[in-house]
């Protein structure tokens, strides 16, 4: 069963005075299966962030619907949205979005506190996750005291601690150097190996080559898809870069 289904989504931004309209998404269709690790690629301005915001229920589509586990996001009432979001979705952002007045530990626990979990349960859940992400020693530190890669790992911990249906990541390696990026991608692979569904937006071919499926979007539509099949990361890398070349030439032609 697909965990996420996107049906005929469109999004039109209207500027403040209604004079100019921007079609960010037009008739987008795709679905993500449980346990999948999908990447979305596309040129700047092709509507990736817009799509992710809609999937995250932070924004509403102009038309179409999004089903999470068969449930339509548009049907959820405004009041329940944030609870829905924190119970079903995990987020990883390009710029980490950690709160500077909380220690890493408290940052990671924030969604659980919002869910009103007991302290004992929080600590039980935190321990294995911190262990796996290699940040156990850093838990008492504050965001300004750790490196970018470590911050991003804390952000991943915060995303997975609620055991969400789906993790949405918007250019998670964007602010990391290549070594930290490689570490993060390894973490993503591992948690995906545990059965976690991940949807990641990225510009980086390297990052995308870790995914099982790559969706290419252009002008607000899904333009092409690539499946890993039996390819290694390196082989997939070559395929992606070929596809991108073809895509950009099509634009010119």
């Amino acid at each position: 069963m697909s965990i996420l289904e996107v049906r005929n989504i469109s999004k039109i931004y209207t500027t403040r005075f209604g004079s100019a309209k921007v079609q960010a998404l037009s008739d987008m269709n795709f679905s993500v299966e449980e346990g999948e690790y999908a990447a979305i690629m596309g040129e700047s301005g092709s509507g990736k962030t817009t799509l992710l915001n809609i999937l995250a229920s932070l924004d509403k589509p102009t038309g179409g619907e999004v089903l999470l586990n068969g449930k339509s996001l548009t049907m959820i009432r405004e009041k329940e949205l944030s609870a829905f979001r924190r119970d079903n979705l995990g987020f990883v952002f390009q710029d980490f979005n950690l709160l500077d007045n909380f220690s890493l530990k408290d940052n990671i626990l924030l969604p659980l506190v919002l869910q009103k979990k007991a302290v004992s349960e929080m600590e039980e859940r935190l321990e294995p996750i911190a262990e796996r992400l290699g940040i156990t020693e850093l838990l008492a530190k504050y965001p300004y005291e750790v490196s970018g890669g470590q911050k991003q790992r804390a952000a991943v911990a915060r995303a997975i601690i609620t055991k969400p249906q789906l993790i949405l990541a918007d250019e998670p390696t964007g602010a990391l150097d290549s070594k930290a990026a490689a570490g993060l991608l390894k973490v993503f692979r591992e948690i995906n190996g545990d059965g976690q569904t991940i949807l990641m937006v990225t510009h980086s071919i390297n990052a995308a080559s870790h995914a099982n499926r790559i969706l290419f979007i252009k002008d607000g539509e899904v333009f092409h898809q690539l499946y890993r099949g039996n390819l290694t990361n390196e082989q997939l890398y070559v395929k992606i870069s070929d596809t991108l070349t073809v895509l950009s030439q099509k634009t010119k032609g």
């Binding site: 995250a56 932070l58 009041k79 949205l81 944030s82 609870a83 979001r85 924190r86 119970d87 979705l89 987020f91 952002f93 979005n97 950690l98 709160l99 500077d100 007045n101 924030l110 969604p111 919002l114 915060r158």
Partner: peptide, 15 residues
């Protein structure tokens, strides 16, 4: 910024 982040991780506007 701090409240924007909290909204993103699932804190409702009322909260």
């Amino acid at each position: 910024e701090r409240f924007a982040i909290m909204t993103k991780v699932g804190m409702s506007r009322d909260m």
